[in-house]
Design a binder for these strands. Structure first.
Length: 461
RNA sequence: UCCCCAAUAGCUCAGUCGGUAGAGCAGGUGGCUGUUAACCACCUUGUCCCUGGUUCGAGUCCGGGUUGGGGAGCCA
């Protein structure tokens, strides 16, 4: 292993040290007649380390010709800085150039648009914004595991390849090893019995159904993994490949589910404010002024819980008009959700107990005969960030609902078995990880949350 | 998939009434005794997205397409 120091450690220690080595990429170089300043960043923190170069140093003439973006190692003495702007600086005694750049290097020491940076996604990790973003993404991943670990949840891995075609959560990507030019045929079309798995398979759109089976044995479980949707969605909030967190809890009802979701979101808000201070300050200053205040407010607030019926009443009484109709039985449109979360509540908002006809077959039927125990958590700007429900645990009611909706029962026999033997009330939800990060950083496009995003027409890198 | 908007130098953009293009940054050269996206001077850089049309003449006007952005639907 190399014995060089991470820049974040050097800046935090701020102690005088000789024979110190750092390695990273040059962000800026300012050449003077008798002194040269170079800032080096290694991605360990937003702040770059100032390196001071004197003309007497070996190889000085070569070093000062390096361009922004060069990869270097610098060895020297760390000293207090006499000038404003940084507490310490590294006086170089030796500089190693690992990789130079030429005039074609696209990143400059200036503002670039996110649209341009998306076209050079292989280089954008070297920018301040994406450094901060990917550090936050990593920190939040660990925070999610911490949250559930502290509460005794078991981290489970559900299948990525699945034969479930009735999950109802969206279009799926086909997984096959068949010859797509001349596949084997049978009476009903392509003969998937001769495919790799002996049946038609797809990439998962949710680990929920399998998660329920594990919860009905381990009590409290969660998944955190990739999810795939083949929808032709072209928005700032949709990707074909994204990560989802899906807890599932046995012996829990809808109220317990909402309580868990509220605790979860607040925990993550507090986590980034306390553990990602420098990166959050960067987003506050450069990306979304006000984001830290909003997150603090969420961490300190009590989330409003509103019945679907009350939401409809509020919308019907609204003084402003809506493009889409409002009536009991119709789903809420984005304009309605924004009105409720931004105008009526001004913060996170649960909508509870939706009409059964606009929700999935597995949601628990309420005693009113009209609604199911579903919940959505809406947040200002990003919209729906969590969708969940209490699950229908009563076998007869579940089977009746499957029949009503025209869904084939045979492929779900294992799911129905969980209700046949030792059934129990249980509930869970799904959180879109990238949407969470958008909400916590103020970044406005999901393509800037994923290192190499997959969207319709795009699988580059 | 639908609606709206945009595309000009490596990047960010300006370009008036239709008359063959400009700034800042980047890059190059020189200057500057401590800079902070350094500063100062000079220099270089163009398939004006593609395609068809109108016109004496199109970056500019019109049709078609491509790509990108915003909004909507679907959803997380």
């Amino acid at each position: 292993m190399s014995n060089h120091q991470r820049i974040v450690s050097v800046l935090n220690a701020q102690s005088v040290a000789s024979n110190l080595t750092v390695k990273g990429w040059v962000r800026s170089i300012r050449v003077g007649k008798s002194i040269t300043f170079m800032t080096v960043n290694d991605g360990s923190c937003v702040t770059s380390l100032q390196v001071v170069l004197n003309p007497g140093m070996d190889g000085y003439d070569n070093v000062i010709r390096m361009g922004t973006g060069s990869a270097v190692g610098v060895t020297g003495t760390l000293s207090p800085s006499p000038a404003a702007g940084q507490a310490v600086e590294l006086h170089a005694e030796k500089v190693t150039i690992y990789g130079g750049v030429d005039e074609d290097y696209p990143l400059q020491k200036k503002h670039h648009s996110f649209e341009f940076l998306r076209t050079i996604a292989h280089l954008r990790p070297r920018t301040n914004t994406f450094g901060a973003l990917f550090r936050m993404r990593s920190a939040l991943s660990f925070a999610i595991h911490n949250f559930f670990k502290e509460r005794g949840f078991v981290y489970i891995h559900t299948p990525i390849i699945t034969a479930n075609d009735c999950e109802g959560a969206g279009e799926q990507f086909r997984v096959t090893t068949l010859d797509i030019v001349s596949p084997p045929l049978c009476d009903t079309g392509i003969d998937f019995s001769r495919d790799f798995f002996g049946q038609a398979t797809q990439l998962t759109v949710s680990g929920q159904l399998e998660g329920e089976l594990l919860a009905c044995g381990l009590s409290s479980v969660y998944t955190f993994g990739p999810t795939f949707r083949a929808e032709n969605s072209n928005t700032a909030r949709h990707a074909a490949e994204f990560w989802m967190v899906e807890p599932e809890v046995a012996f829990a009802n809808l109220a317990d589910n909402a309580d868990l979701a509220e605790d979860f979101i607040k925990y993550l808000c507090r986590y980034v404010l306390e553990e990602c201070q420098e990166d959050m300050a960067f987003f506050e200053k450069q990306v979304d002024p006000g984001v830290m205040g909003r997150i603090r407010a969420i961490a300190d607030s009590d989330f409003v819980r509103m019945e679907y019926g009350e939401a409809i009443d509020r919308l019907e009484k609204a003084t402003q008009g809506f493009q889409y109709p409002v009536a009991w039985g119709l789903d809420l449109q984005t304009e309605h959700e924004r009105y409720l979360s931004e105008k009526v509540v001004g913060g996170p908002l649960f909508i509870l107990n939706y009409p059964k006809d606009i929700k999935a077959f597995y949601m628990r039927q309420n005693d009113d005969g009209k609604t199911v125990a579903a919940m959505d958590l809406l947040v200002p700007k990003v919209g729906e960030i969590i969708g969940g429900s209490q699950r229908e645990e009563r076998l007869d009611l579940l089977e009746r609902r499957i029949d009503e909706m025209g869904i084939a029962k045979h492929p779900l026999s294992w799911y129905l078995d969980s209700r046949r033997w030792g059934t129990c009330p249980h509930a869970g939800f799904g959180l879109g990880f990238e949407r969470l990060i958008m909400h916590l950083t103020g970044m406005e496009n999901i393509r800037d949350i994923i290192p190499f995003p997959r969207t319709p027409g795009h699988a580059e890198f």
